[in-house]
Amino acid sequence: MKKLVVFCLVFLITFVFFNGCRKKVEEVPPPPPQVKEQPKVEKVEKPPQVKEPELTEEEIFERKTLEELNAEQPLKMVHFDFDKYDIREDAKPILAANAAWLKKWTSVKILIEGHCDERGTEEYNLALGEKRAKAVFDYLVSLGISPDRMRIISYGKSQPLDPGHNEEAWAKNRRAQFTIIAK
């Protein structure tokens, strides 16, 4: 009896098993259901890219043209008192910052331009502009910048920054400004 039960059980399991297997193989899959719904939105992802390595400050500096560099005006201009060419107190921190920049970028060579306002005569102004440029030159030398890296020129009153004819314009025009000529 026990044997019969075991046999029956084995048979049953075997039957069920085989039956199950056969069914699976024979079963014809139902036709795919008609698409009624909208397709699922597939998100288009940006393919992974090779990331540009971060540029160092030096490399950024290297890549700039002289024009681009000058357009950024890393060296700030300084202003002067009427008829004077000595460095004003408010110009000293500006020149110190300029000197620091020049020390950082040791290959840079600059032109210091001296300018005057319209209240001086042509001939004297050209000499005065030169004096202003020279005063800035000397001050930068005193801050440790090599004289070989700097040249000076005067434009007198021929290149006003502000074409106005008032104290505000004149104050702007009495200046020494910097142009980077090599890097």
Binding site: L126, A127, K131, K134
Partner: peptide, 10 residues
């Protein structure tokens, strides 16, 4: 003529 060729002074 005027020149600043020495000492940067006219």
């Amino acid at each position: 003529f005027c020149s600043t060729l020495e000492e940067g002074n006219s």
